[in-house]
Design a protein around this nucleic acid. Structure first.
Lengths: 335, 335
DNA sequence: TTGAAAGCGCTAACAA
DNA sequence: TTGTTAGCGCTTTCAA
């Protein structure tokens, strides 16, 4: 494997000149540049990224830590972030945390190991109690709900407002017994709890009671859980005419479960999700949902991170960004 | 940021001893080890991965180059590969190639740059003509269809046989006018062409003609294309009672398009896909499909790659592995 | 069981 | 415009 020294020797110049050619520095005579390029081609030279990283103290790679790669929502997010990072010539390495607090902390320490120049962390396992652990000396952007006002930049969804709008939409379509399918109830601020708050607000706005029987909490926000729970709701004789699902993924399961139970959507029950994943549009019935503008969120997260990476001194002003949203109306709420 | 030298000084030992402690080498006295660990903790020491990589000539990271992260199929594959790599303590960095030949070649050169110890490459853009370019001096495993018998290890699906079985299943359910929705027709061996071959074989087995009107080639294998094409087929008055879709993703679109056109599935048209993505089970109607045993493929690909990484000399015997498959029967073909 | 020396390949800083 | 020097932080090799 040829090194920069080999190329220098072959081209009859110094290693520094080769380095200057590689990095497109000015102040290299055209003839010299060509001589070097020719030698590089002849020796099939490749920069050794490890050496460059060590020398520069930078890797040109950012980490993206998400609960799971194989989910319509995080998959879509990852794509948007990769696209946004490209503008800064940053590579993105995806870490899968499985929503565990421990793995999220692991991802944090990998950046500390100089593997990444910075980290975009989608917190699900870590909670507000872990805020202190985010006080790290390298760039981090939190993408998610659980930690607000921490010592880091933060990009979030308009969870409460959008959920309120989603639920209001069901009310406007005539629903009066609106269920919510949410994740586990905990003490902490997570996606489910914030979206539940929006749901309650909308019911209150409409003068409807919050019936505990209509609050359905599933263990995991998966298609399987959603399908099972929807069947149980129908089989158990629960009276409901609308369902707000806190994610599209769980909504896909709910649609399936209602189909199993022979409940027509939207005729007897209307369903709305949250996320506007790619699949939503193609389900039968097509799923109404909230579109939180993933691309803007992704771009924003990368912008914030890149800014931190570029600035040398720590800088202590931490930004909070909350994206816009829109209600996407499709067949599952009557078109 | 503390270095190994700082720790050595603080613990009153040499850098080498610290290194030995970090790497769990034997021949370190217990008392010494503890002294070092204490100093490491006190200084909040973290190994500098860049320095270690340079010295070792290894990064502990493998690349996974796939067309897109945000696809049910590649997402699932990625998860399986990450899990398999964990057993070897290998990190996985996902590269998105967008199915372009150029980006696939880029991914190849990144490994050459010592960024990755090896690469799992899902070829879609590169074709048989590019076989020569795979003659690289570092570990590569090809995951996909397009390049057979190349100078690398290869993990593939049983495309022809499984497609034949899928189509036969439609025949057995009474279909006589079976359409195929496939990708663009090219000269080369790609997923679509191989699966088309299986489709033709099954028709021939059943004594059915291959009617060109039933061969529907879409530009991209997306939900959108599938939906549009299915509507066109119905609106155009095409006579068909079964559809074999070369991927589940395009099948999801086809199901949607048939719903738009008011064609009941499976009553009037039966549909089968290929891949058994997670969503298939939860669609309405649930999608019959081919399950190619992703986990085994992923494990196998990682095993092959890890073997190459561990062995020092090149080694020229290249392995081909073709996974098993099963036909998963669900509602879209009548349960 | 521990340590000293050397160097992995690159580039920042400075000198010519 | 080009070259020299030095060193990023770690681990391999060999010696003590």
């Amino acid at each position: 494997m040829a090194t920069i020294q080999d190329v220098a020797k072959a081209a009859g110049v110094s290693a520094m000149t080769v380095s200057n050619v590689i990095n497109d520095h000015p102040n290299v005579r055209k003839a010299t540049r060509e001589k070097v390029l020719e030698a590089m081609a002849r020796l099939d030279y490749r920069v050794n990224v490890a050496a460059r990283n060590l020398r520069k103290g930078r890797t040109g790679t950012i980490g993206l830590a998400v609960p799971e790669v194989n989910s319509p929502y995080y998959g879509r997010l990852a794509v948007a972030i990769i696209a946004a990072a490209e503008r800064y010539s940053l590579r993105v390495c995806i870490e899968q945390t499985g929503a565990s607090r421990e793995n999220e902390l692991d991802a944090l320490s990998l950046s500390r190991n100089r593997l990444y120049d910075g980290l975009i962390l989608s917190t699900v396992g870590m909670g507000p109690a872990d805020v202190e652990l985010l006080k790290v000396d390298y760039p981090v952007v939190i993408l998610g709900e659980r930690i607000f006002g921490g010592p880091v930049d933060h990009v979030a969804m308009p969870n409460v407002d959008a959920s309120r709008a989603a639920t209001r939409h069901l009310v406007e379509r005539g629903c009066r017994r609106i269920a919510i399918v949410r994740g586990p109830v905990g003490e902490e601020v997570d996606v489910s709890s914030l979206r539940f708050t929006g749901y309650r607000q909308a019911l209150r706005d409409a003068g409807l009671p919050v019936d505990p029987a209509l609050v359905q909490s599933v263990e995991t926000l998966t298609m399987r859980s959603g399908a099972r729970r929807a069947r149980e709701m129908v089989d158990g004789g629960l009276d409901f005419d609308g369902v707000f699902c806190v994610t599209d993924t769980v909504a896909m399961g709910v649609l399936r479960g209602l189909a199993d139970a022979g409940v027509p959507v939207p005729e007897r029950v209307k369903v709305i999700g949250f996320d506007n994943v790619e699949e939503s549009e193609f389900l039968v019935p097509a799923l109404s949902t909230i579109d939180p503008d993933h691309d803007v969120m992704a771009q924003r997260a990368v912008d914030l991170l890149a800014r931190r990476i570029e600035q040398t001194e720590p800088g202590s002003d931490h930004e909070e960004f909350v994206s816009d949203f829109s209600v996407v109306i499709r067949e599952s709420t009557g078109g």
